[in-house]
Amino acid sequence: MASRGDTRQRIQDVALELFAEKGYEKTSLREIAERLDVTKAALYYHFKTKEDILMALFQSLGAPLDELVEWGKRQPRTLEMKKELLARYSQALQGAAALFRFMQENQATIKDLSLGETFKNRMFAMVDLLRDEDGSLEDQVRCATALFSIHAGLFALKDMDATPEEKQKAVLTVAQELIVAAHHGA
């Protein structure tokens, strides 16, 4: 028998799949229940609204990013730490690719639910860990671009002829090269 935690996770997985396929607004709780082969009452036991499901998704998939920011804050601001931060971030995004696809395709919903503000704050915290305040403007741009190039890689490379691992490695290499260039400019 599945535990309550497993059921909640299944609901989140199926909901995210449907949100990505059809869009958040066009997905109903009934459709989520049908895809799970459960009653709406069973679904309501775990989540009362679609917004509750979406908030839980952001919390569970955002937790590794919050942990990464906290880890980065405890480290000395060395080039190696920044490269490691990018490597860990790249790895964390692989587990959240479906959520990022959802965010890309449902930006109005994200804004309406103020989830975008939480995400934006996480990104600012990450950029702050990568950049040197006394670095040149160009070097600070390199640091921000390094982080966002990892995001872009999830979308821009989706149709390229390479394995997901090859794409991830290529994007991480470019992101780390930007950090090295910014570090040498400091």
Rank of each mutant, 00 (worst) to 15 (best):
D37Y: 00
A182R: 05
S90D: 07
E51H: 09
F19Q: 01
T27Y: 03
L85S: 02
A181V: 07
F155H: 10
E177W: 09
P64H: 01
D139T: 11
D139H: 09
L178R: 04
K169L: 13
H46K: 02
A170Y: 01
L115V: 06
D6N: 00
G95R: 10
L29I: 09
G153I: 09
E31F: 02
F119G: 01
E177D: 12
S90C: 11
M126N: 07
K167N: 08
K120P: 00
K22P: 08
A56L: 03
L178Q: 08
D139N: 14
D134P: 04
E165H: 11
G153S: 07
Y44N: 10
L154P: 00
A63T: 08
F148H: 12
T109N: 02
L86P: 01
E165G: 05
V174E: 09
E17V: 04
P164A: 08
L157F: 13
P64Q: 01
R88F: 00
W71F: 08
L129M: 07
D161F: 13
L57T: 10
F155D: 03
E84Q: 13
M81Y: 08
G116W: 05
H183F: 08
F100W: 12
L137W: 11
L154H: 07
T78E: 02
K120A: 14
E105Q: 15
K120V: 15
R142V: 02
A63G: 01
A144N: 05
A98L: 15
Y44R: 08
V171N: 02
L172D: 03
L129V: 08
R142T: 01
E80W: 06
E67G: 07
L57D: 03
K73M: 09
A125S: 13
F124R: 15
A144I: 12
A56K: 08
S149W: 09
G116C: 06
K158C: 08
A182V: 13
H151C: 13
L147A: 09
T27Q: 02
N121Y: 10
A63S: 09
L61Q: 13
T173K: 15
G5M: 12
D128R: 13
A41T: 14
L154S: 03
V69Q: 02
A2R: 11
K83M: 09
R8W: 01
L43I: 01
R77S: 14
